[in-house]
Simulated assay, not measured.
Amino acid sequence: MEYKEERFSISYDAEDNGLSDHKISAKDLGNAILGMNELVSEVYKTMYNDSSEAVELKVTAPAKEGSFIVEFLMASATPEVVSALRYIGIATATTAIAGGSLFEIVKAIKNKKIINVRFDKAKKFAHIDLGDETIVTDMTLGQLATDKKVRAALDKVAHEPLKGKKGASFKVIDEKEVTQFSATNDEVLSLSQMPEGSLEEHITDIEFTTVTFTQINFDSSKGWKMKHQGEERKVEMLDKNFLTKVAERKQEFVKDDLFEVRLQSESIRRITSRTSKKYKILEVTGHFASKERRLV
């Protein structure tokens, strides 16, 4: 089966002689082109759970007055690839999508930290919680706008080439030279990676507890392991006095000895993946051993 070709262009402009004279740094251009390929590929994979190389993207760069324009050609665009382009906002939409496009939703988020995203599968909507407001959009757009890989690729395409430039302007133009999306100045800044801490909940807890050490490092706070609540876990030893005593009395340290410690646990609960946890011993407060062997 033969499929049609899809053409679209990306326009970069700013108060910058290089862009208006059709010049852009090789690094910025290369990253933008790779970013566009990654963006379409990641959106396709997310929408269809397909890791195959279905995207065949080619580039021409015609010089047009007043800006630097990169023209893309999507060869053999399958209906699925066309749909992915439509969700991104780089193909003429045949039907409306709630929220418009990936470009529009990310622009509306305004580079704010995303607190949570809730999907209503029955109504096919996503609720993106930004703390001070909630954006309701198409469920697929919600998935794409909160996907780190998609946002990283979008950053390469739209934000990085114009980073730090005054009067920045970014446009997506279809093959009929109709502008499908535009962003200027601070709006361009919003087309970037998700802010640090998005979709994460940080929980810190400190407790007095008892542990045994199953692995020690006489020379560093790293490389320690403890047995705590029946589980062996990596732990960072932050008690410098205890580290000094251990280094001075290497021969007397018995790994199976029981210690009382002030233990800090740091949990990062990620909405889109499993929780990670780190442990740090702030202070060793007791050593259950004979008097002559006690380190604390």
Rank of each mutant, 00 (worst) to 15 (best):
residue 1 M to H: 05
residue 4 K to M: 02
residue 5 E to W: 00
residue 6 E to H: 03
residue 13 D to K: 05
residue 15 E to F: 10
residue 15 E to D: 12
residue 16 D to K: 08
residue 16 D to Y: 02
residue 16 D to P: 13
residue 19 L to T: 01
residue 20 S to E: 05
residue 21 D to G: 07
residue 22 H to S: 05
residue 24 I to S: 11
residue 27 K to S: 12
residue 28 D to F: 04
residue 28 D to N: 13
residue 33 I to A: 08
residue 34 L to I: 07
residue 36 M to C: 03
residue 36 M to N: 07
residue 41 S to I: 02
residue 45 K to I: 01
residue 49 N to Q: 15
residue 53 E to M: 10
residue 61 A to E: 05
residue 62 P to C: 02
residue 65 E to L: 08
residue 65 E to P: 10
residue 73 L to N: 09
residue 73 L to R: 12
residue 74 M to G: 03
residue 76 S to V: 00
residue 81 V to L: 12
residue 82 V to S: 08
residue 83 S to I: 02
residue 88 I to P: 06
residue 89 G to Y: 09
residue 92 T to R: 11
residue 93 A to P: 11
residue 93 A to F: 07
residue 95 T to L: 04
residue 95 T to K: 09
residue 95 T to G: 03
residue 97 I to V: 09
residue 101 S to R: 09
residue 106 V to N: 07
residue 107 K to P: 13
residue 109 I to T: 03
residue 112 K to F: 01
residue 112 K to E: 05
residue 113 K to D: 07
residue 114 I to P: 07
residue 117 V to A: 15
residue 119 F to M: 12
residue 119 F to Q: 06
residue 120 D to A: 09
residue 120 D to C: 10
residue 120 D to H: 07
residue 123 K to M: 09
residue 128 I to N: 11
residue 134 T to S: 10
residue 138 D to V: 01
residue 138 D to W: 05
residue 139 M to E: 12
residue 139 M to P: 09
residue 140 T to L: 13
residue 142 G to C: 08
residue 144 L to Q: 09
residue 145 A to F: 13
residue 146 T to R: 14
residue 147 D to L: 15
residue 147 D to A: 15
residue 148 K to F: 09
residue 150 V to P: 14
residue 152 A to T: 11
residue 152 A to W: 08
residue 155 D to I: 04
residue 156 K to D: 15
residue 157 V to W: 01
residue 163 K to S: 05
residue 167 G to E: 04
residue 171 K to Y: 06
residue 176 K to M: 12
residue 181 F to D: 14
residue 182 S to M: 10
residue 183 A to F: 11
residue 183 A to G: 13
residue 183 A to L: 11
residue 190 S to D: 02
residue 192 S to R: 04
residue 193 Q to I: 07
residue 194 M to A: 12
residue 196 E to D: 13
residue 197 G to C: 12
residue 201 E to V: 14
residue 204 T to V: 03
residue 204 T to D: 08
residue 205 D to L: 09
residue 207 E to I: 06
residue 208 F to G: 13
residue 210 T to V: 10
residue 220 S to W: 05
residue 220 S to Q: 10
residue 221 S to K: 12
residue 224 W to E: 06
residue 226 M to Y: 00
residue 226 M to H: 01
residue 231 E to C: 10
residue 234 K to Q: 04
residue 235 V to G: 04
residue 239 D to R: 03
residue 240 K to Y: 08
residue 242 F to N: 08
residue 242 F to L: 10
residue 243 L to H: 07
residue 243 L to R: 12
residue 246 V to G: 04
residue 251 Q to L: 15
residue 251 Q to G: 13
residue 254 V to A: 14
residue 255 K to I: 00
residue 256 D to A: 06
residue 262 R to A: 09
residue 267 S to W: 11
residue 269 R to N: 14
residue 271 I to Y: 11
residue 271 I to Q: 14
residue 273 S to I: 03
residue 274 R to C: 14
residue 275 T to W: 15
residue 275 T to N: 15
residue 278 K to R: 06
residue 279 Y to H: 02
residue 280 K to I: 00
residue 280 K to L: 05
residue 284 V to F: 01
residue 295 L to M: 15
